[in-house]
Structures are given as structure tokens and as C-alpha cells.
Amino acid sequence: MDPIHQFEIKNLLPIAHIGGIEIAFTNSALFMLIGLATILLLMLGATRSRALVPGRLQTVAEVSYEFVATTLRSTAGPEGMKFFPLVFSIFMFILVLNLMGIIPYAFTVTSHIIITVAFALLVFLTVVIYGFWQHGLHFLKLFVPSGIPIYILPLVTAIEVLSFFSRPVSHSVRLFANMLAGHITLKVFGGFVVMIGGFGFLGWLGAALPLALTTVLTALELLVAVLQAYVFAILTCIYLNDAIHPGH
């Protein structure tokens, strides 16, 4: 009944203690592993035959390939395609983890902020390192938009810097908060069904409303799961575009 219980990390197989830090194979790791296996099954298993006329699963693999490729190419240009494996891996991993989380009793890996922060920092550091490596100090032009009058330039630059450094925060919190809030809501309404349903026949009638709401919310969560994976991926594309074309 506790809507927070679903987010608890359980140690399934303790591995080591390093300086008081516990390393273990947890339910989170298990679901990451299942997610990885799912992606590999889809992207490697379904494309094994390299069919000219694709079957269903190969079509799914091809559609996801082309979807991410089109998104990246339209956002970051043809040069952005060198980041295609990165964007694709991030998108697929988050998408599969989000979708798996909707399955009852499953653990939602992306509802933990440390995971989304790790992804956001991966993107942020990729942008910063690639930007400086490719453009040197010209990368800093990112903070100085052209065509701005000189007397408000310091203000605009300050805002640009601030917005640049708040990117990993909003990038990670958006996904984390969406997953967390959605699953708490589902659990709360699911709890109502059990609670009201416990009052006998009238309770069954009364439980119909939260049950219907849970059904609708599950559909909504399905949408949110896909949408947030897409949002994360397209923001990644937009940030990478800054690293590739810092002049704009």
C-alpha cells in the first residue's frame, strides 16, 4: 500500500564492501540487465537474417534506427551523426526502462535520480569536452550570441551561462520526476481500489472509479514513458548541436 515502496532498492546479491560503500547486484541492476537483453534481442536478434523484406521485429528495429537518425540529423545536422550510437543507446535504454516500469511488480530504473543524473552528465560532459576539443576557445561563443547590443551583452551572457549549467539539472530532473510522479499516482489509485474494494459489495462498486482511473493513468503512463524517452533524446540532440555548431 505504500506508494514509495516500489522505489526501494533491494540487494539481491551482495558483492563487495569497498570503504564502507556497498556494491551489490540489486533489483535495479536486474531490470537494467533485462532492459539491455530486450534491446539486444530486438536490435541484434531481429536483424540477424538481414531480410530484404523485414519481418515485424526487424521493422521495429529499422523504424527505431531511422526515427533516431532522422531526429538527430534534423536537429544537429549531418555532422551530428557521429553521435548517433550515443543518442540511439540513450534513447533505447531509457525507452525500454521506462516501458518496463509500467509492468506490474517491475522496478522503474529511471525513477531514480542518480540514473537520470548520470545520463544527463554523460550528455553534458560529452558536449563540453567535444565542444572544447573541436572548437577550442571558440566554443565559448556559445555564451555570446551575435547581434546583441554591447550594453546588454554581459546580462545576456550571464543568462546563457546560467542556462547552460542548469541544463543537466533540468535534463535529469524532468525524466526522474515524470517517472516518479507517474508511478506514485498509479500506486495511490491502485491502493484506493484495494482499500475501497475491501468493504464488501458496495466497496466493489465504489472501487470501480479508482480502477477506471488507474486504467486511464496506465495508458497515460505509457504515453509519458515514450514521450520522456523522446524528450530526453531530442534534448540530447539539441545540446550536441551546440557542441557541433557553437556559433549560433
Binding site: I18, I23, A24, F25, A29, M32, H112, I113, I114, I115
Partner: peptide, 14 residues
């Protein structure tokens, strides 16, 4: 749970 820093190391590792 999402803010329990004891689990961060395992999660990050995996």
C-alpha cells in the same frame, strides 16, 4: 529511496 545515497554506488556501477 531515490535519495538514498547508499544505493548510488551500485546503481552507477551497473
Amino acid at each position: 529511496p531515490p535519495f538514498n545515497s547508499h544505493t548510488f554506488a551500485s546503481q552507477l556501477l551497473w
